[in-house]
């Protein structure tokens, strides 16, 4: 099929004004250590899943912080919960619980919609 005509260009900018921070706030309540992340990327570099895919805990964490949950559903599923990230994190963030709770929160949100 030949495509023609115009399509709007989607901006890549994360507009934080339109972000919904409710899930992030809920996550902060459930996994308080989540706040301590300094974005060093240690978790991501040791991640077994990251060896094979683009899956990045750091990216999931950051998107969640910015209140952007759209792509997370697909992403979070790739975690194997092996726990290596837990041993690497310099700030003692409970990364496994963070991923599990993120999954549940995103899942819950998508179900509501």
């Amino acid at each position: 099929m030949i495509k023609f005509g115009y399509a709007p260009v989607v901006s890549r900018t994360l507009d934080l004004d339109s972000s919904d921070f409710s899930l992030r706030d809920e996550l902060i309540r459930e996994v308080p250590s989540y706040k301590k992340c300094i974005g060093c990327g240690g978790c991501t570099s040791t991640c077994s899943a990251h060896q094979h895919t683009e899956f990045s805990i750091l990216r999931c964490n950051m998107l969640f912080r910015r209140g952007k949950y759209d792509v997370l559903e697909k992403e979070l599923d790739k975690c194997m919960l092996c726990g290596k990230c837990l041993l690497v994190c310099p700030r003692n963030v409970n990364t496994r619980d963070m991923i599990i709770k993120m999954r549940l929160l995103v899942q819950h949100k998508n179900k509501k919609q």
Partner: peptide, 10 residues
């Protein structure tokens, strides 16, 4: 825990 519906993991 329930799986995501798309089941795209792994």
């Amino acid at each position: 825990k329930k799986s995501f519906e798309n089941k795209q993991y792994y």
